[in-house]
Nucleic acid binder design. Sequence first.
DNA 1: CATTTATTTCAAAAAAAAATGAAACATGCA
DNA 2: TGCATGTTTCATTTTTTTTTGAAATAAATG
Lengths: 170, 170
Amino acid sequence: MSPASNLDTQSDHAIGGRQLELESIDFFVRLMSMLGMPRSVGEIYGLLYFSQDSLPMDQIASRLGISIGSASQGLRTLRALKAVKTAYVAGDRRDHYFVETEFRRLFSTFIKDEIMPHLESAKERISRMEKSLPAGIEDREFYLVRIEKLRRLTKASGRLLPALSGLLKL
Amino acid sequence: MSPASNLDTQSDHAIGGRQLELESIDFFVRLMSMLGMPRSVGEIYGLLYFSQDSLPMDQIASRLGISIGSASQGLRTLRALKAVKTAYVAGDRRDHYFVETEFRRLFSTFIKDEIMPHLESAKERISRMEKSLPAGIEDREFYLVRIEKLRRLTKASGRLLPALSGLLKL
DNA sequence: CATTTATTTCAAAAAAAAATGAAACATGCA
DNA sequence: TGCATGTTTCATTTTTTTTTGAAATAAATG
């Protein structure tokens, strides 16, 4: 049984071939999962990536064979990442979604929203380590050196990561 | 109930205070989980990070309150990442583990082993997309442009990521 | 303003990932 | 070689994450 057997086979118009669509979904499911995103998020982005028309939520759900709950949740995630945007379509009250294809911007949001907050709390945690170091401890130097290493790691990451998307010359 | 309530409270010698140890475990559990590693891997690294002596597997397991199966599996992962090394201890046939603290090297292995293979298969997938593009398709240009964008993304990532650890000035 | 249509929310179910523990396998030692 | 100690493996259990589906909410339309 093919992995895509539950994809809606109707409404195939305006799609550059089912095979391309499947490859795209596969591609982005893997990419998103590397970034810790659930399958449905990759599926949605993958579907939209090769879609010329923007699509409403219910069509996304039915084409992918996922529930509207998943689609709603997945689209929320993608909106937060600025990975999809909505288009107005005259005479239709549904939101129509299309992808942001500038990966540079996408990663930049991802780093800002998903990584930097962790780095912030890491800094606090390192301060707590220093405080929790008993006063008259043996080999105080050993512990201080290792704590300092962590501080340098977070400092360097905090500088490097936001610069990363800028280096991405696509 | 404290999150660390199942940590072994015996054999507390040679540790710079339980609090420091707990903060360290907490720190690395989060860091590793950002890299998609299971909790146990972070726990082990966190325990070893502030340990002056190298520790055998059974002590790691009992101090963390995890099974030896988990410890074995976690140490295998850490060895593969070159994040821990083993030390010979005279008169003891057990392997004794200690951490590699050069994060630069650690990340470099991580990128090479966990990311680059995916990039490789991504390239193949992009080629397949191009092939699966129907010959006489309308708006061929639209699809080709999007495919090309993916290719540039993988190219740029393939160059940037391996260079990353070099940029990490710690 | 009642009705239809679209979307979100969230408890429950399903699926996926991780941990356990015991058996199998190694390995050093008497 | 046979025993004892240490480690890995892997089927099972537990935990965590994701999806579902139905109810609640919101929002446009006649």
